[in-house]
Each structure stands twice: as structure tokens, then as C-alpha cells.
Write a protein that binds this DNA or RNA. Sequence first.
DNA 1: CTGAAAGCGCTTACAG
DNA 2: CTGAAAGCGCTTACAG
Lengths: 341, 341
Amino acid sequence: MATMRDVARLANVSIATVSFTLNNTKPVAPATRLRVEQAMEELKFRRNPVARALASRRTRIIALLYPALQHRFSGTVVNFFTSAAQTASEHGYTLVLWPISNDAAEVTELVDGGLVDGVLLMEVQLDDPRVERLRQSDLPFALIGRTRDPSALSYVDIDFENTTAAAVDHLVDLGHRAICLLNGSVGSSALEAYGPVARTEAAFDEVMRARGLTPVTLACDETPIAGRAAASELLERAPDATAVIVMNEHAAFGFVSGLTHRGLHVPRDMSILSIASSRDMAAISDPELTCMAAPGVELGRMGVEALLDQLEGRSEKHPQALVMCTFVPGQSTGPAPDRRP
Amino acid sequence: MATMRDVARLANVSIATVSFTLNNTKPVAPATRLRVEQAMEELKFRRNPVARALASRRTRIIALLYPALQHRFSGTVVNFFTSAAQTASEHGYTLVLWPISNDAAEVTELVDGGLVDGVLLMEVQLDDPRVERLRQSDLPFALIGRTRDPSALSYVDIDFENTTAAAVDHLVDLGHRAICLLNGSVGSSALEAYGPVARTEAAFDEVMRARGLTPVTLACDETPIAGRAAASELLERAPDATAVIVMNEHAAFGFVSGLTHRGLHVPRDMSILSIASSRDMAAISDPELTCMAAPGVELGRMGVEALLDQLEGRSEKHPQALVMCTFVPGQSTGPAPDRRP
DNA sequence: CTGAAAGCGCTTACAG
DNA sequence: CTGAAAGCGCTTACAG
């Protein structure tokens, strides 16, 4: 492998000049630049990123922390990941998925490790120990998601409030009044509360009441089996329900089949609207679910950009943005029973 | 951040001695070792991995290449990933998921990048351009999967031959004779053929004929929608079929619901056995699928170990291993119709 | 068992 | 616009 020294020798310049032309970090005379570039070409030079990292004290590696043990890595999540990786690459950074739980201790290892310039967090909890740990360090980070009070943090997140409102409105427009929410489970302790779950529930309550409707919320684990059980629970707790907003894409599969087993037809007897999901995931169910698709591509990109703002010292204040889910028509929502002829 | 120099000064030794005690690379007197360790403790020293990488010419980073754009990152795959990461960590390496397609050009970037010591490939095709590219480089790599002729490669893979045989036998034991295979689609060109798909089809043919049965194979894309269409195709092409082995976990969802829509009951009218899947994925279907679960934990571990053998120069010949899938009972297989009272 | 020193391949003030 | 040189924080022959 050719080094800068080799290039410098061949081009008859100093290695400093090679560095300057390579990085565009200082003006270089056109003729000199040409010689250097030809030399690089001839020697197939590629700069050693490890040496560069040591000298510049920046590795240009970004870690995306996705706690795959706690949250399934669904097709919905792939969109976030690939978009984030793409965006990082366009800016000269490498983004990799760092295998880690949502445990603070593992974050400490990563931070102390010194291998990454910045961190992007996913699946953020309202009181997230990883965030606390990162705050104590001086490692730049941004969230895809947000904590209870994210005012001093860089984050991008789904706009659960408006998404939930749009979901309710879609169902209300179809004539539904008895609308339930099937949420994810927030675990035993409030401290572990998962942002999307908490925010959706709060928004659902508020939106329903604002429309003069009574909010009923169920919650279950993020598994199909739990979703199946939730179907029975729904019929007991809210026998008059005609529509359910599901904020739990893995439970949705079981929920639909659970309803079917209880003799209900979707969407004739019950409309199902899956939110913060994706077209791919919605297609797994039978019938295909109507859904509000998570803006994975947008948030992946924006999350990286928020982090790069810090890394490159571009802005003082923390970028913060919320993006709504997009409505994707499917087969699982229809008019309320009393609206049909 | 404290450096080795700081530690050396505090412990009254040279930085070489600090390095020797840290890495156990040369004998150090017990008293000296103690002083050094106390100094490291006191200063909360953590060695800089970038400097270490530059000096030792090894980054101790392993890239796991999973082409997430071509193959969905399912719950089944998470097992491979977390197990591989865990194993790498136990050996002092960091394994990260490298966002890359299964394109040779991107492999070149990775190889030239010089940021990783070795590569682990997943979703290997019979003639995989990534493998060719890695062969040309001198970057160590191992496969989870195998090419058409993997004799000179390090690999670990599912034993599709024996897994398929076990799947057929399970169904034959239940009295089925007209057994079909629903495979993944291998793409338009034979050159793109995906190892598991090709091997399973070959094994299915052989196993069925060996038992005096007639093999019928369908194939479809790895999506639920394609699976739904495949259900119709099955009923046309093999109206007498009573059991189907599905080697396509994403199509399985649609396949089951497609059959149900056509008025067939699973497993009363049709048994479904999903192979190379996992308990989690099987639970998504209704009924829960009987499956042969991919040995993700084992293969993740063994894949990393095979790679480390090369990285640490432990063995001359390439480790090669095949592991069978494990039978997981479910609700989707039952006795053949004519076996029932 | 320990140390002085070279070197990994870059970046970056500093000087001209 | 260009260069000489220090330095990033380690590892590793080499010498004793």
C-alpha cells in the first residue's frame, strides 16, 4: 500500500502538500495539484484512515445504537438504518450498527473505547440511562427519538401527537366513535417508559377527549402472541369498539388473527390502523394493514445531520425536529358498521 | 484522557513496560506489574485503540456484511448478529454491522478502507462477487453460508441437505406423500443463485426421490404478497398436495393466509413446515408455524471463530462446518388427511 | 526483567 | 503557495 510519503516523493513535493491537496485544507497551485493527483493515481494511493484518525483525533466513525435484544429489528427499522448510513457516507463518515443493549454500562465501554466520533441513539426511553451516560461524557450524540425533557438535546423523532390525531381522524371520518388504542407495553416501571408508547397514549387521550370521544387503551408486549391475547382483552373491555389504532407493529399480526378467531371480520366488524409501522410490515398481515408509515428515510437522514452539526461545529443550538407518519392505504380499515347500508 | 506516558511516569517505569503488562506480551516482575496496574487504576487509563491499531497494524474490528437491501433483516438474522458480536467481544474484537449491499464495488471500498481486520459475509450466493473481490485482496474473511465450491474457503453454514431430509421425514411420518417445496426465488440469472435456495431445492429433489416420492417445487419472492400468490399456484399445480415445506420465511406469512382464503385449513387440509426460520418468526403466522429453526447462535459464534483462526494465524486449513436446523413444534403440521379417522 | 528509541502514516501549527 | 518538523499514542525489535 502506497503511503503519502511515496506520493510526495513521486510528485516532488512534501507530504504536507499531499495532505493539503487531498483534504483541500490549504490552497495548492494548480500545477502542483495536478502532479500530486497524478502521483496518487499512479500509485493507487488511499489514505490510511487509522493514521488520519490518530493525527486528527477523529475517526469519522459514527455508531448507531440499536438495542436489538430489547426491540426487534423490523423492516421498519431497516429504513432508518440504511438512510442514516447513506447520509453519513455522503459526508465522509462511516456509520456502523454497534451491537449493544440499552444498558448504560455498554455505553460507557463505547465512549471510553474512543473508536467513534459520535453516537446516534434509537429506541429512546423517556428516562434513558444511555442518554445520561452520554451527557456525562463529551462524546457528541443525537437521538432518533426523545427523552421526557429533550430540550437540551439534539433529536429527531416521529411526531406522535399529530400522527395519532391523523389516525383518529381517519377513523372518525369513516364513522367510528368507539375507538381503542392498542399500545406497546412500557414495562413494569415508569422509569423504563418507552417514548413512543408514552407519547402516543397521551396524545390519544387528548385527541379523543377533544373530539368528545372516550379513549380506551390496551397495551401488550411487542410480540404476536401478546397481540392475540390482546384481541380477547379488547372484546371484554370494550365490546362496543369498532376500530383500533395499533401502536405495536409486532403485536398487530397476532391481534388481527386473534380477532378473526373470535369470529370478527377485519375491517367489516373491526377497523385496524397500524401506526409507526411500514408498508412492508403492514403487508405481512392478512388482510394487509392500513398503516401510518414511519418516516424512516427522513429521520435517518436528519438524525445523522443533527449529529454532524455537532461534530463539525456548525451550529450552537441543538437541531430538533418532528416528522409525521405517512398514511398508506390498506385493507384493514373501512366504514363503521352503522355507516354501511 | 490519560495516556501510557502518564501511567509510565506515575509507576516509574518506561512506557514499554506499561505496554508489556497491559498486553501480557513480555514477562514483567510482579512488583512492577502491581505498580503499573495501580497507576492505571488511579489514572483511569484506557488504551487508545486508534494508536494501538496504527502501531500494531491491526484495528481489531470485524465487519459483518449483511446486504439488508436485498434480504430482510429478520428476527432470525438477529440471532446470528448478536451471537457473532458477543463472540468477537470475548476475543477482544469489536464486530459491527457494515451497511453495504451485496455489490462487489462496495466491498472494494471496505477492503481499501483499511478500517477492518476481517470480514464475515452473510447471505452468500453460489457465485458471489463479494467473495471474488475478497479473494483478490489479502483481507481475511469467512462466510456464514457458502459458494458453489467453497473448498478453499472458511465457512460455516446451515446443513440444508440434512435439514431438508429431516423436514421431509417429519411430514412422511405424519403420513404425507404429496409434499411440495415452496422455495425462495433465485433471481433471473443462475449466477445470482442464492446458496440456501439452490441447496434446498437439490436436497429436496434427492430426498423425495430416494423415498419414492415425486418432488414438486414452487418458488416466489421473499415477500408475503408473493407468498399469497404462491398459494394459488400450489392449488393449480399440485391439487393433491397435503404438505408444503417452506424455505422462505417471509413468503410463509402470505402463503398461509392465501391457503386460508382459498378455503383450506392449516394443518387439517394442508401441513406447513417452515425451515431455516426461527421461533419468533414462526409465531407471527396464524396458526403458529411448525418450523426448523436456523442455528443462528451457533453459526454466529462459529463464523467469528473461523475468522479469528485466520486473524490469529491459528490454523493452516480453513475451518468448515455445517449445522442442522432444530425442529420446533408448532400448530401448522398434522397428520395427512387419509391418516385421520 | 526493563528501557531507549524507532516507527506506524497521517495532520497541523509554524515559518518562510 | 510550500516545506521542515513536531506530534497523535501506541507497539515492537533491539540491547542490556
